[in-house]
Amino acid sequence: MAWAQVIAETKTQERTVESDRHLFASLVQEHERYLYNIAYRLCGSREEAEDLVQDALVRAYRAFRSFKPGTSFKSWLYRIVSNLYVDTLRKRSKFREESLDEPVYYEDSEFTKMVPDQSTDPSQMVEEKAFVGEVQKALDRLPVEYRLAVILCDVEGFTYEEIADIMDCSIGTVRSRIHRGRKALRNYLHDFGKAKNWLPGTVHEDV
């Protein structure tokens, strides 16, 4: 880790083919687990995730000269995965064109009071196989831009600024995508979440 960072700070003019090879290999070794994780959450299947990671690694190596030492390799690598994934979807003509509903406008505030204390802890929920399956299904239903934004934020813990960098869009767009994506996920999981006493309160019908 420390070694990789030291090398990452090496000035461009000091880079050689040999040092690049070592650097690339060590960085990939450090990040491949998380790379696979995000690929899995994006694709929803192990086979597709593996193909995506392999393609991304080959592409990343070929483009490694364009990686600027001192910047985040993780963001750079995730950008490659993201672009590759979107490209793949487009090629397969499975690109989802549907858009989510506009943000909800609330005319009134007649809602059931929530009872958060009685809800089930999410960390316990994800231990249930069936629920994890539902969560992944919900992710799969999201338009790709929303799915990517939510995964980068909630699963990977990136900041909005980092996500904007990875997705090559403005922070405002990231904010909107995450919000709409998260709302849609909540809606997709509503029935299941209610049955499992995971979701407090009620969802507005218009949402």
Binding site: R33, N37, P122, S123, M125, V135, I151, D154, L189
Partner: peptide, 10 residues
Amino acid sequence: LFSALEVVDL
């Protein structure tokens, strides 16, 4: 919920 999803290993 999504933050609590476990990391899927290679």
